[in-house]
């Protein structure tokens, strides 16, 4: 369960989040929509621990722990996963090696036994097959020379292997790339169960055709201004975001 309570954050002197409050119970998928500049990406960065954002007030409790005081790697070990909008290329770093290092770092922190190369490859190959990816994916350098769709698929592969409790999917700008959206949707839907929850951040309603959320929140002017069922997304698509900031 993720509880965001009265979260305020700024970059430099600009206050972007002005009191975000929302709760995502286990097993639920929530969507955050909102106009450009509402603070959607900032929220995902603050949750995942990127440098450069200063939290001035509020707290974020994830499974009983305040994650704002944790390093990004500890948040990952606690079960948080950020799917990047623009996955980063890592020349010289093999995908399989990267995945294994990542999985083992998380297992180590959780006090679980690390996987050896053989056990890991077995697991990774199964995940690759399930996501209908080519096997040479594991041999390539992380995201180097990948198409946009392949990068998304690679994010979903990481998510499938790391099995987070909560995934944050930052799809703020990628609403128009239907193939990428479908890949992300498949990845999320495959993990859906009563323990897994997700926060899907998007500007467009389209993604939510593929991942049906339990709750839709509207973020405007740095606050959640409305929350409602999946149908709220359709309503917004029809009426737009105009007038929401004042609410």
């Amino acid at each position: 369960m993720l509880e965001i309570k009265n979260l305020h954050a700024r970059i430099g002197d600009a206050e972007i989040l002005k009191g975000v409050t929302l709760t995502i119970p286990d097993g639920e998928i929530h969507a955050i929509m909102g106009p450009n500049g509402a603070g959607k990406s900032t929220l995902s960065y603050v949750l995942s621990g990127r440098e450069g954002y200063e939290v001035t007030k509020g707290e974020v409790i994830f499974n009983g722990e305040n994650i704002l005081e944790m390093e990004p790697e500890d948040r990952a070990a606690a079960g948080l996963f950020l799917a990047f909008q623009y996955p980063v290329e890592l020349p010289g770093v093999g995908n399989a090696n990267f995945l294994r290092t990542s999985l083992n770092a998380i297992r180590r922190k959780r006090g679980e036994e690390e996987l050896d190369a053989v056990a890991f490859l077995k697991l990774a190959r199964a995940a690759v097959r399930q996501l209908a990816m080519k096997e040479d994916f594991l041999k390539r350098n992380v995201n180097v020379g990948f198409s946009g769709g392949e990068k998304k698929r690679n994010e979903m592969l990481q998510m499938a292997i790391l099995k987070p409790h909560l995934a944050i999917l930052d799809e703020t700008d990628s609403g128009l790339d239907i193939d990428a959206l479908k890949i992300v949707a498949e990845g999320v839907n495959a993990l859906r169960d009563e323990k897994f929850s997700a926060l899907v951040i998007t500007h467009y309603q389209r993604l939510l055709d593929h991942i049906v959320p339990d709750v839709v929140h509207v973020l405007a002017g740095g606050k959640i201004v409305r929350s409602g069922p999946a149908s709220l997304a359709l309503e917004l698509e029809a009426s737009g975001y105009a007038g929401l900031e004042v609410a």
């Binding site: 990004p72 790697e73 948040r75 990952a76 950020l82 999985l103």
Partner: peptide, 12 residues
Amino acid sequence: QVFYLRSRGIPE
């Protein structure tokens, strides 16, 4: 790149 790796659980 550093952040990407850390977000995947790898210590800094």
